[in-house]
Amino acid sequence: MSGFARYARQVVLREIGVNGQSVLRDSSALIVGLGGLGTPAALYLAGAGLGRLLVSDFDRIAASNLHRQILYRETDIGRPKLEAAQEALSALNSECRIECLAAPMDEAALLQAVRAVDVVLDCSDNFPTRFAVNRACVAARRPLVSGAAIRFEGQLAVFDTARGSGCYACLYPAAGQAQETCEEAGILGPVVGVVGARQALAAIKLLLGLGDEAGSLWLWDALTQRERRLRIPREPHCPVCGNSNES
């Protein structure tokens, strides 16, 4: 299917229109992690008509993934996530070019990947990856949409130091962070689905210049449906984006 016919329900929105759809077609995103957050985000970005998606994940699909990682099917169990994701996303939208980063990335390779896109979505599940992605985004001056979820709790933060916001390290200093995993604490599938969808929404808004969410943190409790939005101040002495690190 070619042309804008498939995007008619988006194009009719005055905030998007034909010009906005052209912007999405010419835009690219890096998704780090194709789990509970990354799979809905990837589906919505491909469906929205982004021209290019870089995806990174080195795991294989397990049966325990299927209750929340909606890109995969039972027949995919045991397959590399990248392989199954590329197949499913291309089937959804053949106009979106899916590029798989099939090898673990060191800092230089990660920085190169970040520089090659317009926006980065951190859908990973561990602090070392999150800190590495943040450093690359600050160095490359690319906006970062960071999501996380555990149990019934979700959060999303948007960082864009090129526009004066703080970075992930301003919110979470690297030292002394304890890691709680979904295997230990549990996770309800729709919770990561909501956060991943909101990551895709935030990325689309960044690409189209709709609103200004940079430097904001959204916190959500799925049990009570309570949510809060906080501002993330830029820390002058942040080791990643602080004044002493500016060129």
Rank of each mutant, 00 (worst) to 15 (best):
I98K: 03
A84D: 04
D57V: 04
E95R: 13
T75I: 13
C100V: 10
L45I: 06
S64C: 14
G33Q: 07
L30H: 04
L45P: 02
L37C: 04
E107S: 14
G36W: 08
H67D: 15
L82K: 08
E95D: 15
A41L: 07
P80Q: 11
G49R: 05
I61E: 07
V114I: 10
C96Y: 00
G78F: 03
L71R: 04
K81Q: 06
E83W: 09
G33N: 04
C100D: 01
S56P: 00
E107Y: 09
E99C: 02
A109M: 09
G49L: 08
L53A: 02
A48S: 15
A113C: 05
L111P: 03
D59L: 12
E107C: 05
T75V: 15
Q86C: 13
A88E: 12
A116W: 01
Y44C: 04
L66P: 09
I70Q: 06
G49K: 04
A109T: 11
D57R: 11
D106A: 05
L54M: 10
R115I: 03
L110D: 02
G78C: 04
G38Y: 03
Q112F: 02
P40K: 07
R60Q: 13
L71S: 01
A41T: 05
L50Y: 05
E99K: 02
G78Q: 08
L101H: 02
C100M: 13
S90V: 10
G78K: 12
A102E: 14
L53R: 05
M105H: 06
A103N: 12
G38A: 03
Q69N: 06
R115E: 12
L54W: 08
E87P: 00
L110V: 09
Y72W: 11
A63R: 15
F58I: 09
R68L: 12
C96F: 00
L110C: 05
A116L: 06
